[in-house]
Nucleic acid binder design. Structure first.
Length: 530
RNA sequence: GCGCCUUUAGCUCAGCUGGUAGAGCAACGGACUCUUAAUCCGCAGGUCCUGGGUUCGAUCCCCAGAGGGCGCACCA
């Protein structure tokens, strides 16, 4: 029944007197619902009634635009040092969301928030007049407002704007979370990111850091003559990495397509084409588990530089990440496991086989008999699958014994050929490649190598992959004939790099989870009632 | 996929061998011209995640399921 009917016949109750909705406008709840709303529904109904009231008195709760003269940070930086009790004649027009309201009788203090900061509006009944004062008093937390006034400080010294007018820019129908405790429920924070961003400065900061990292990467690469490109997301072959792909279908072509798992093979086609220095920042998709460090879609930057090898690429990696740290956080020092690490210092370079030897006390090399490595693996509780060769076993030993301890930035180099089908063989060791992976805080952040550019050898490596796939390895690749044709035209010596941007953002934002640096992380769908 | 934890008002959280629920904030009514999570008085607000079971009786115990978190596995 309508909220004003008090149990009487509800069939002709649209103009009951004394209630809050006698403005000749049927409320939404009356249109949709014959029952009195409670809780959240009552709150929404109340606010919808306020919208109707404002419209009936000739003001629009959702105006089209507002001329803002300053951001809230602008006001703070220009007037941040005023003494308490100062009035200025500095006119400003501000816009923001009402976050706090302190109604003091004939004074109202509103704290508004824009993307730069928060600021207090000082509203005096004597200044704005009775009618407007009542409209301001009727504002709710969450409403967007525009305010005109002059900069002042209160007797206690709080920087404020003495408002001559406050206009509603958008009425919020749904209440904000708790003004003090904010929004902490992780599920709600990820699903309703809008509410998280309104309430949590730490969340806004994480995404600011992410933005600065990407902007910094672009600046660094522009300064080194790199060109940004875009390549297909829909792939006929999902190559360039070891991962299970997402499968999709194109109707008009009636064909199966994969979402890309890496950017690599298309970018190297561009190196063949003579573009010399290219990079792409883009989303890749891997159909694997979700964890605090894994999201099914994530963002990589990959770059390729002609005439360079993996040593050059390691230097670029250091520059990119150190610059990004300074640009995003103001410092090259990051906290890892609660200890400071200065990224500006040179990063350790060490071969994977040497790390395994260090950890196990046993010399390892991909050339040694498989049985010896199987035995070593079992001593370190590493389960070995039948189709794994010596190289794969060494990688597993590395992951089990060494990886987690690589807290300070470390380039792990010299990956076995078996696990590196696109990397060039080490010029000094035919069983290893000129490859590196960067580990920081025990996590892989980047991967790069001297690119294999010999089309005959590349075909052999692809065929090895395909054999592995046939043997049941779901992450193994296939022979990409078009890529081989490209290599046949001749790819210059090239160094390549891939960096997981989400992982860098986790590191530099000090985030606990990848979900804290992805605006809309992958979640199971929410079930909506009705 | 497996294990552990978790789900109570819009938000943040209590809830006693098992006797059908409370607080703070937000909201509503009232007081207040310098507040700072304003304060004070008053009032209202619930599918206790869902479905079964045990019981005279279930937010609580049992079973199954759902969402989320963490760890393991997979991976970057």
């Amino acid at each position: 029944m309508p909220s004003c009917a008090h149990g009487n016949d509800s069939s002709e109750s649209t103009s009951c007197s004394g209630g809050p909705n006698n403005y000749g406008v049927r409320t939404v709840s009356e249109e949709l619902d014959d029952h009195s709303a409670t809780g959240l529904e009552a709150e929404k109904e109340r606010r919808l009634n306020d919208i109707a009231r404002r419209r009936s008195s000739g003001s629009e709760p959702y105006p089209y635009r507002f001329d803002r003269s300053h951001s809230l940070a602008d006001v703070r930086s220009a007037h941040g040092h005023l003494e308490a009790g100062t009035e200025t004649d500095a006119q400003v027009a501000l816009a923001g969301r009402v976050m706090l309201k302190r109604d003091q009788g004939k004074l109202i203090f509103l704290t508004i928030q824009d993307r730069t900061n928060q600021l207090q509006l000082f509203v005096s009944k004597a200044v704005v007049g009775d009618e407007q004062f009542d409209d301001i008093a009727a504002l709710d937390l969450g409403d967007w407002v525009g305010a005109h006034g002059t900069v002042m400080t209160t007797r206690k010294g709080e920087l404020s704007v003495k408002t001559t007018a406050v206009v509603l820019l958008s009425k919020a129908v749904r209440p904000l979370p708790d003004k003090w405790h904010g929004l902490t429920d992780t599920d709600t924070r990820y699903r309703q990111r809008y509410a998280d961003l309104i309430m949590n400065e730490s969340s806004r900061r994480a995404f600011a850091v992410r933005h600065e990292i990407i902007a910094s990467f672009r600046r660094t690469l522009a300064g080194q003559g790199f060109i940004e490109v875009e390549t297909p997301v829909l792939h006929v072959e999902a190559g360039g990495a070891h991962a299970r792909p997402f499968l999709t279908h194109h109707n008009a072509l009636d064909m199966q397509l994969f979402l890309r798992i890496a950017l690599e093979l298309h970018l190297k086609r561009l190196i063949v084409g003579g573009m010399e220095r290219v990079y792409e920042i883009g989303r890749v998709f891997r159909n694997e588990g979700i964890s605090p460090r894994h999201n099914p879609e994530f963002t990589m930057i990959e770059l390729y530089q002609a005439f360079a090898d993996y040593s050059d690429v390691m230097a670029i990696t250091e520059t990119l990440i150190t610059n990004a740290a300074v640009d995003a956080t103001g410092s090259s020092v990051v906290m890892i496991d609660e200890k400071p690490v200065d990224l500006a210092k040179p990063w350790r370079r060490v071969r994977m086989i040497d790390l395994v030897t260090e950890a196990t006390g046993v010399e390892v090399h991909p050339s040694q008999p498989r049985a010896q490595l199987v035995e070593l693996a079992s001593r370190h509780s590493v389960k070995v699958e039948a189709q794994w060769g010596p190289g794969k076993i060494i990688e597993e030993l590395f992951e089990a014994t060494s990886e987690a301890a690589l807290r300070e930035p470390t380039f792990v180099t010299g990956h076995p050929v078996e696990i590196s089908p696109l990397a060039r063989v080490d010029r000094n060791d035919a069983h290893l490649t000129e490859r590196f992976e960067l580990f920081v805080g025990g996590r892989e952040l980047a991967n790069g190598y001297s690119e294999l550019n010999d089309p005959v050898e590349q075909r052999q490596r692809f065929e090895e992959e395909e054999k592995s796939k046939a043997a049941g390895n779901l992450e193994a690749g296939t022979v990409d004939e078009d890529y081989l044709r490209a290599l046949e035209f001749g790819m210059p010596p090239t160094g390549g790099l891939g960096i997981g941007i989400d992982r860098v953002a986790i590191l530099l934002a000090g985030a606990a989870s990848i979900k804290d640096v992805i605006l809309f992380p992958t979640l199971r769908p929410e079930v909506f009632e009705q």
